[in-house]
């Protein structure tokens, strides 16, 4: 059995967001790039499953659609423990474009389990995993917070509004995973970093496909008015402000 983890290359979550070119492009100057946090948890869980599978899971691969600049992020995934990496050489244009690139690769190189993060912390699309499953005509389970294997059977948990559900599905499938899938993202060891340099990173040309959406421009939220401070000895004043001024209680 083979697991593929889809990796998005995103700015570090503490990045101060700025735009350039008359607010039409993200300003990447000085930005640190990381594995999208949910994808990093997905990779961690994939490795845990492989280690506990007694050899039934033979390989964990990672894939990314991006330019050469994203290779350090793929190398990090290899250092964490992925066996090999694939980079589809294209500048991502929108979710449909990215999902189409992944789907074309997967039609020729099928995997049993495909894991995608539920969101990416840059453009917050929450789309690629679902689109990929539809393009491949496979089952998908979203908001997955646990994946376990019981022999051949795959048992998933997903978070629903106000509860959780346990599911079973046939292989192959796409799981779109969220927080809880792994406790903590795994950190590369020194040995992992050394080994990552020698692991295969295959570059594939992009296929011809279109984007269906485009960003016209960006803006930052308006500055927040100054916080009204209330004395800790006078909590009633806060209650009155919330009642009479904000009218929220």
């Amino acid at each position: 059995m083979k697991i593929l983890v889809c990796i998005s290359n995103v700015p570090d979550t503490t990045t101060k967001i700025r735009f350039t070119d008359n607010d039409t492009k993200f300003d990447a100057a000085g930005v640190q790039w990381i594995i999208n946090p949910w994808d990093e948890l997905a990779l961690t869980r994939a490795l845990e499953l492989k280690e506990g599978s007694g050899g039934a899971i033979e390989k964990i691969s990672v894939i990314n659609v991006g330019s050469k600049d994203t290779e350090p992020t793929l190398r990090k995934a290899l250092a964490i423990g992925a066996d090999d990496a694939i980079r589809i050489d294209a500048e991502p244009q929108d979710a449909y474009f990215v999902a189409s690139q992944l789907a074309e690769y997967l039609k020729a190189n099928p995997f049993d389990i495909m894991l995608c993060g539920i969101d990416s912390s840059d453009y917050n699309g929450s789309l690629v995993g679902g689109m990929l499953s539809e393009l491949l005509d496979l089952p998908s389970v979203s908001s997955v917070s646990k994946i376990n294997m019981d022999g051949e059977n795959i048992i998933l948990n997903r978070e629903i509004d106000g509860g959780s559900e346990t599911l079973e599905t046939t292989v192959p499938f796409v799981a779109i995973v969220q927080k809880g899938i792994a406790l903590e993202p795994r950190i590369p060891s020194m040995r992992g970093i050394m080994m990552a340099r020698k692991k295969p990173l295959e570059v594939k040309p992009a296929v011809e496909t279109e984007a269906l959406t485009e960003f016209a421009g960006f803006e930052l939220p308006p500055p927040k008015a100054k916080c009204k401070m209330v004395d800790a000895e006078n909590v009633n004043e806060l209650v009155e402000l919330l009642h009479n001024e904000a009218k929220v209680i």
Binding site: F19, Y123, L212, T213, E214, A216, L220, P221
Partner: peptide, 17 residues
Amino acid sequence: KKMVFTNKAYADVIVKS
């Protein structure tokens, strides 16, 4: 208009289809 960068910015998105 949509939220991007987890509430740190907004974007205007054109749908071409």
